[in-house]
Amino acid sequence: MTELRPGVAAFSRASYAAELRGDTDEARRYLEYAHADAWTPADLAYTRHYLGELALHSGDPATAADRYAEALRAYPAYRPALAGQARAAALSGRLPEALALYETVVERLPLPQYLIEQGETRLKAGLNADWTLLKAQRRLFEAAGVRDDLTWAEFEADHGDPVRAVEHARAEYARNPNLVAADALAWALFKAGKPAEALPYAKKATATGWRNALIAYHRARIERSLGRPTRIDPDFDPALPALARHS
């Protein structure tokens, strides 16, 4: 792929594949190739944004914030990078700044994922989370025939009804049995009080070696509840799961 048609699209995919294998350096290298190849403002913003995401997931929010800012310089209307800045601020503990940024992000593009991140940041800051807009969007998606079981599985497991979370996660996993869906199903089952059923999916989600703090945390919690010896990363903040999740 990267030899047949080297370019932003091919390098980005190669980078994601490397990230899922747990090879963060390789993932970064491919993204840098993609960045070197990018020419249009949108492509520049896209590659810089994902360099930021990679840094954020490696536990380096400062570098991530720089990359997001560079992405916005290339293309000021690139909303994912604005959301990235909010995420980096929240994960660095700068909650008022993060909330102000989320306000702007949601004002411009109220995607469910941003709304959930905003709600979690508000909860962390000791405020109430208002899920009205999120739930209205769920109604809209359902009325339009759009299925996004993954988002609702994760949201219900973290902030709502674990039984519904399991339903959504099973539906998602049946359609797309990938790492993300496996993790969502594992976490939903754990929250619904079925850690033994959850473990195989948690193992599946981590089987490729993907170094993602959230899925590692999920697996550790599941294993601990089954009485197995395990280590939970003390640097990981379980109060902001949606911020760690997005990739």
Binding site: A9, A42, D43, G145, N176, N178
Partner: peptide
């Protein structure tokens, strides 16, 4: 594979909310 729900330029449109109407047209 969430990242590739949003490939480059088309991703801007999808992420911007054209996804629901496009999906609606199909379903």
């Amino acid at each position: 594979m969430r990242r590739f729900l949003l490939p480059v330029a088309a991703g801007l449109l999808l992420a911007s909310g054209f996804l629901p109407s496009a999906a609606q047209a199909l379903t």
